[in-house]
C-alpha cells in the first residue's frame, strides 16, 4: 500500500511537470529542456523559504514564479536574441545549476522540521481518525501525513489541470495553441507569436517549478541533482497518456498527461521492486521514450515487411 500511495503521490506531483512539458512540447512545439533546471530551481527556492520559516504555500508560489522566470528567460533568448530553441534551453538549464547552488548555498537542503503544504489537511485528517496518526484502508495502515500529501497533490494538480483547460479554450489560449501549430498563420491574424511563445514557456516552467516545490516538500529535501532527466520523464508520461486517451482534444490530452505520469511512476516503482537497479532507471526511461517515438514510425513498416515475407514465402 505504501508503494501505491507513494507512487500516486509522486505521480500526481510530477503530473505538474508533465503538464508543463505538454505545454512546451505539444502546444508550443518548442523543445524546451530548461525543465531539468527548473524543477530543481522550484525545489531549491521552496526549500530555502521553508527553512527560513515561510509558509508552505508562499514557498510553493515563489517556486512557481521562479520557474516562470526561467521559462521567460529561455523564451527571450530564443525570440529576441534568435538563439536556437534547444540551445536557449541548454543555456538556461546550465545557468540554473549555478543559480540553484547559489539559492541553496550548498548541494542539498534537508527539510527536517519544516511544515509542508499538506500540513493543514493532515491536521484535519488527524482529528477524523481514532488514533490521530493513521487511516486504515482495506486493512492497510496509511499514515495521515501520507494521505494528506496524496490528497493535496491531487487537489493542486486537478485545480491546475482544470484552470489550464479553461485557459486553453479562451481567446488567448486558442491563440497560444495556434502559435505552436502555425506561427505564420498566427502572425497573419495580428497576434504576436513571439510574445505568445515567451508567455507559454513561462507558464510551462512555472508549473515545473511548482512540481519541484511539491516534490521537495514530499521527499523532505531539495538536491541540486534532482532535475537530471526530468524532461525525458515528462515526455514518457505524455506518450503514455496519449496511448491511453488519444491525441484529440485539449482536455483529454491534459488528463492523459496526468494519467500517464501516475502510471509511469507506478511502473517504475514496480520495476524497482522487481529488482531494477536504480542506477539504470534513466537509461530505461530514455530507451522507453526512444521506442515510443520510433516504433509508431517504423513499427508498421516492420510489420508490413514481416507480413509481406510470409505472404511470398
Amino acid at each position: 500500500m505504501t508503494l501505491v500511495i507513494g507512487s500516486f503521490t509522486i505521480g500526481l506531483i510530477l503530473s505538474l511537470l508533465s503538464i508543463g512539458v505538454f505545454i512546451s512540447f505539444r502546444i508550443l512545439r518548442f523543445c524546451d529542456i530548461t525543465v531539468d533546471g527548473t524543477i530543481t530551481l522550484g525545489a531549491s527556492v521552496a526549500a530555502v523559504l521553508l527553512v527560513q520559516g515561510h509558509a508552505p504555500w508562499v514557498a510553493t508560489l515563489a517556486a512557481t514564479a521562479a520557474g516562470a522566470l526561467a521559462g521567460f528567460v529561455t523564451g527571450i533568448l530564443h525570440t529576441r536574441f534568435r538563439i536556437q530553441e534547444i540551445l536557449s534551453g541548454i543555456l538556461v538549464m546550465t545557468a540554473l545549476y549555478s543559480v540553484n547552488l547559489r539559492v541553496m548555498g550548498r548541494s542539498n537542503v534537508p527539510l527536517l522540521d519544516t511544515r509542508d503544504i499538506a500540513a493543514p489537511l493532515a491536521g484535519v485528517l488527524a482529528t477524523l481518525v481514532e488514533d490521530g496518526e493513521a487511516l486504515h484502508l482495506a486493512g492497510w495502515r496509511v499514515p495521515v501525513q501520507d494521505m494528506a500529501m496524496l490528497l493535496t497533490a491531487f487537489l493542486v494538480t486537478a485545480a491546475v489541470a482544470w484552470l489550464l483547460h479553461r485557459f486553453l479554450l479562451t481567446q488567448f489560449g486558442t491563440a497560444m495553441r495556434a502559435t505552436g501549430e502555425n506561427p505564420q498563420m498566427v502572425r497573419a491574424q495580428g497576434i504576436n507569436n513571439q510574445n505568445m511563445l515567451v508567455f507559454g514557456l513561462a507558464c510551462s516552467n512555472g508549473l515545473v517549478g511548482m512540481a519541484g516545490a511539491l516534490l521537495a516538500q514530499y521527499q523532505g529535501f531539495a538536491d541540486v541533482q534532482m532535475g537530471i532527466g526530468m524532461i525525458v520523464w515528462g515526455l514518457a508520461s505524455i506518450i503514455i497518456g496519449e496511448a491511453l486517451v488519444g491525441k484529440t482534444g485539449v482536455g483529454l490530452a491534459i488528463v492523459g498527461a496526468m494519467m500517464g505520469t501516475v502510471l509511469f511512476r507506478l511502473l517504475v516503482a514496480i520495476a524497482l521492486r522487481w529488482g531494477l537497479d536504480p542506477n539504470d532507471l534513466k537509461l530505461v526511461t530514455a530507451a522507453f521514450v526512444f521506442a515510443a517515438l520510433v516504433l509508431p514510425r517504423y513499427g508498421k513498416q516492420l510489420v508490413r515487411k514481416m507480413l509481406g515475407g510470409r505472404h511470398y514465402a
Binding site: 485557459f167 479554450l169 479562451t170 481567446q171 488567448f172 489560449g173 486558442t174 495580428g190
Partner: peptide, 9 residues
C-alpha cells in the same frame, strides 16, 4: 484586437 480571457468559441 487583444485576445482576451473570454471563451473563444
Amino acid at each position: 484586437q487583444r485576445q482576451g480571457l473570454r471563451r473563444a468559441v
